[in-house]
Amino acid sequence: MTPLVVALNIALCFAGFAALALSLDRHHRDALAGRVPAGRALPMRAAGWALLALSLATAIAWEGWNFGPVQWIGALTGAGLLVVLVLSYRPVWLRPAALLALPLGLALLPAILLA
């Protein structure tokens, strides 16, 4: 298990869960003080599910079918907990944290490829 791959998966899962959470009116209202605009909910849901699928593909690509899904479930758990904590205590931080998690996670990609 490579810690960089775990960090990448957690970042992808966090961004995916954040997109899914922000596609809901309740969380969008808490985080951004307004309802989800009419045409934005579906693309946010699609992006959230795509990021979660990408994290599964990443885990399987680097860890194989034996350990990849196990690592992915762990990353889902950790990222989900982080999203719940941010939504519970500082909902206005969710959007900036998600927008920061994705590039930081992808910045790990060259280090993962070289390792």
Results as ranks from 00 to 15, higher is better:
A21R: 11
F14E: 07
G48E: 05
A97M: 14
A107I: 06
M1D: 08
I60D: 01
G68E: 01
S88A: 15
V5I: 14
A47P: 00
D25C: 03
V5S: 02
G74P: 09
A79F: 09
A111T: 00
P37S: 06
A46L: 15
L87C: 08
G105T: 08
A7Y: 03
D25Q: 14
A115Q: 12
T2P: 07
A46C: 13
L56W: 07
L24I: 09
G80M: 11
L87M: 14
I73T: 12
F17Q: 10
L42A: 14
E63N: 12
R35W: 09
A59P: 02
A33M: 08
L8P: 02
L22C: 09
W65L: 13
R90V: 13
Y89G: 06
A98E: 05
Y89W: 13
G68L: 01
A111W: 13
F14N: 04
V6Y: 11
L94G: 04
A101Y: 08
A57D: 03
W72M: 03
L56D: 00
A111N: 00
G78R: 04
L56P: 00
I60A: 12
L113Q: 14
G78H: 06
G68C: 04
N9M: 15
F14W: 08
L32Q: 13
F17R: 03
V36Y: 05
V83C: 11
P3C: 05
L85W: 06
P96N: 08
L24K: 12
A19G: 07
A11V: 06
I10A: 11
R95N: 13
P96A: 08
L99V: 11
M1S: 12
G105H: 07
W49Y: 15
A7V: 03
I10K: 02
E63D: 15
V6K: 04
G78W: 07
L24S: 15
P91I: 02
L108D: 11
V83D: 02
A61Y: 14
E63V: 05
L22Y: 07
T58Y: 00
V6N: 03
R45K: 15
N9A: 15
R26T: 14
P91N: 01
L109C: 03
A59R: 01
A7H: 05
L85D: 01
L20N: 09
